[in-house]
Design a protein around this nucleic acid. Structure first.
Length: 117
RNA sequence: CAAGCAGGUUAGGCAAUCGCUCCUCAUAGAUUUUGGUUUAUGGGGGGAGGAAAGUCCGAACACCCUCCCGGGGCGAAAGCCAAGGGAUAAAAAAGUAGAGGGUAAUACCCUUCGUCCGCAAGGAUCGAGGUGCGAACAGAGACGCUCUGAGGCGAAAGCCGAAGAGAUCCCGAACCGCAAGGUUUGGGAUAGAUUCAUAGAAAUAUGGAUUGUGAAACGGCUAAAUCCUUACUGGGCGCAAGAGCAACCCGCCCAAAUUUUUGUUCUUAACGUAACUUUAGGAACAAAAAUUUGGGCGGGAAAAAGUAGCUCGCUUGAGCCCCGCGAGUAAUUGCGGGGCCAGACAAAUGAUUGCCUCGUUCCGCAUUUUUGCGGAACCAGACAGAAUUCGGCUUAUUACCUGCUUGGUUU
RNA sequence: UGCGGGAUCGUCUAACGGUAGGACGCAUCCCUCUGGAGGAUGUUAUCUAGGUUCGAAUCCUAGUCCCGCAG
């Protein structure tokens, strides 16, 4: 689990990222990124009910993405709010598959310099 | 061995690295609510289920409505107000239904009677009293026509019902019309085809039987799943209930500042005077009003808008599990002992690995079959994640165990 | 989390427990030199599974899917 300083929780802030953020799409994953006034990177994960019918399946995807984000945190540029939106078809992937897609997404968005997670 | 019926248990373990949340202790820091609050680090401890699910029921708890009791207060009295407690009686609405029991309570559970289903083990969302719908086809005939109603039966709902009126059908008469038909009027019928017995002079009444049709046939069937009554149960609304604080708004009070007005005192200038007076300006004090700021107290009814700010409720309760001794056929329950109990708030309980068993699939050998042994692969694999809390029900699902029934085969 | 509503032809909708109707579509034909308009004929449906009933779109139970409300 991420620390509280790396979580994006408030509805207002999420709405503002949706409004002014730039989006990058890689496969089934969409990333919305926007600058914030802080030194840290904050994450938010959106997994709709269409991805997985059960709460267990959705929580598993979110937990794995949080772990990958935690591992990637030292390599990322600070000062951004990030929202990951998961599209259907994501539930079949395991940990390594998700990590691969997220790494590609970070590189395409220009948030990461070294390609190591 | 096969098919089936009933009941029960289980829902992996150990370890490594990196993390999250709650409680507690220590250290360091911040801060005038200072044995408080809060931040960081470290030590210790706790951290999903049998269904956490569906939300189909029931309760606890909270608020509201109705009603009852009511400490106390006011009043000459009648009576009025009212903290608080409650659901005996009433209203309304919703539900329940063989009998008896269990429970906080239920549409749940247990025992038992009857009925139905099943060869059986067993099973059923069957069960108060009454009334009532029953198309089409088939059939002679399909719930039996409507209203008033003397009288009778019944605890009630309601039922039976002499007689009369209307309606429909059949038979007939008169009139109108070329005819189809129409109007008026008389009689009969409106539960019954055939047959038997009894009573009777008879009409008829009562009781029984029958072919065929059909789901159902003058005697029943069917209401939790379209009604009424009786008996029983106060009702509604759900923790996004509800409460407090802050903030905001309104009112009052206090303090300070500024402005304006008035009054008093002092002073400057001007007209005039012996002098007071008068006019204009300044300073000080007092009073009033307005505005702003700060503090305190009280309130926020209705409507509209904004903000999902903080805290409590919030997790130990009708608790759950095990053992022993009792009550009871049982569900359940009394006493004693021991053990266990998550509390987040965009929402923790995890991620990546290693090993061990439990399993699953495949292959080979032995065996009549079941099965056993060996090897390989997958390697805890299914359903599934607390959100106010419990008790049921239902649905989803892994691996197994026990008892019983029927049938087959072998001895 | 709690509470509530719904599912009927391709679409929008009706229907006391008793033959599932209508509109717009679609197909064919007529009309016209052709198309449109108009006319005629036809096509296609009760979310799923049990139950109550002689009989279920309707009533009951369970499930699936969709939608709404809360301060």
């Amino acid at each position: 689990m991420l620390q509280k300083t790396n979580r994006l929780c408030k509805k207002k802030e999420i709405d503002s990222v949706f409004g002014r953020g730039k989006s990058v799409k890689e496969g089934n994953l969409t990333l919305k990124a926007a600058k914030n006034q802080l030194d840290s990177v904050r994450f938010c994960f959106v997994v709709s009910k269409r991805v997985s019918k059960t709460a267990v399946g959705r929580n598993l995807i979110k937990r794995r993405m949080r772990e990958i984000s935690k591992a990637a945190l030292p390599y990322l540029k600070p000062g951004y709010d990030l929202i990951f939106i998961v599209a259907p078809g994501f539930g079949k992937l395991d940990y390594r598959g998700i990590a691969e897609i997220m790494e590609k997404t970070f590189l395409r968005a220009g948030l990461m310099t070294a390609g190591k997670i």
